[in-house]
Design a protein around this nucleic acid. Structure first.
Lengths: 106, 106
DNA sequence: CGTGTAAGGAATTCTGACACG
DNA sequence: CGTGTAAGGAATTCTGACACG
């Protein structure tokens, strides 16, 4: 499990390109940010910059919205995913430690 | 040898971000395009869009310029690289064909 | 709740040209 | 040759608000 796709998470894409790539309106894209579903960074001048991950995330969000899921529900799902992801990272690190030093057994 | 880094070649980055990421001026970036060293695509409105590959390419170009290499020389080097790359692809495909069907031997 | 829209302003980018060397 | 710059215009993005439902 190595480091891959170094570009996927770099926030370098303007909202216009995101609009084209996702098919969403800027209004929608900005609204999902307002509802804490997506977190672009800002350029010096104040314009939003998104990553490819953000674009994928937006397409997932759009699917759920279409299915009638409300933004606050989506936000909760996201929180759960992050929690699980953190747990995964924790257990992976634990696994590496065990592999290196053996399982602790007093 | 599979398909990797699906984002590396997507032309989605505006010149302002390229300027920040490379440290070059827009003048320089546009000039290298004029000299056929880099090939951004255009948005509907006419603004340039670059890929991460383009950014890496620009940094290589900048290094060579600093070393006193002229743009037309760099362009020739690029042409050679493309030629070699095409030869590599050709021999790789040939290798796959041989692996699949055996070397032709009448 | 989620989205469209008109409004006004600010930041971004574009081209062609002049300058220096 | 490679790059800076001032000029004027066009495309892009921003925010806050009103509207509908």
């Amino acid at each position: 499990m190595g480091i891959e796709e170094p570009y996927k998470d770099k926030k370098v894409i303007t909202i216009g390109v995101v609009r084209e790539l996702t098919g969403l309106s800027d209004r929608q894209i900005r609204y999902y940010e307002e509802r804490k579903l997506i977190f672009p960074v800002r350029s010096k001048g104040g314009s939003r910059k998104y990553s490819f991950s953000d674009i994928e995330q937006l397409m997932l969000i759009a699917d759920k919205i279409e299915d009638g899921v409300q933004t606050h529900e989506i936000r909760q799902e996201l929180a759960r995913e992050i929690k699980h992801h953190k747990a995964d990272v924790r257990s992976m690190i634990q696994g590496q430690l065990n592999a290196q030093f053996g399982t602790r057994r007093p």
